[in-house]
Amino acid sequence: MTPQESLRLITETMNNSRKAILQGSANHFLLWGILLTALSLVIYFLWHGTGNPAWNFLWFAMPVIGYPLALLLRKREASIPKSEIGKLSGSVWTAFGAFAICLSIIAVSLVPMNVTLLIVVLLGFAECISGAILKNWPIIVAGFILGVGGAAAAMLLRSTEAQLLLFTLGGVLLAAIGVIVKMQYR
């Protein structure tokens, strides 16, 4: 091997390895994006149809459905190596999940608050950080728009049902990130 060939081999191997790792994270964006979109639409239509806000308790089904599916996905990707990118990204979304669940429980049982606003900001923030970890500008911008724009919309939209559609938008954005990352690192 010439020195040039060696350097090319190192660069190509590292890039391919990084692509494989990022492809794995794209699957998780897709999973949570589709789940968030589907669940927000189901809750919206049930709430809109019946006028009963109790349908919001269905949000607690999100971790119940999502985490086993995410574990299943991880089992399927068993050979994808452990990396700092995966670990950091996982920590960000675990923290988001913990915040979202705790805030929802507090809002329901202790202190009433605009949970939509809080969660949409957290969702945008988590997306922004994920974009920074993946070094992907479209994700950073999408997260920023979702967080800041979503917070403004949550304050402006009077109907709490309509506010739910912000989560649909968030879900679509998450799934879109999955598709972008998959296409970018194919």
């Binding site: 091997m1 060696s6 081999l9 190192i10 191997t13 590292m14 391919n16 390895s17 990084r18 494989a20 790792i21 068993a78 050979s79 994808i80 190596p81 452990k82 990396s83 700092e84 670990k87």
Partner: peptide
Amino acid sequence: HSELRLAVISILSGVESADFTFLRQQ
């Protein structure tokens, strides 16, 4: 300075750990 060993080390330098299947695929 051998193609396969260099590829293996390049992969492992960027990750915490990798399994045999992944190294073989890559």
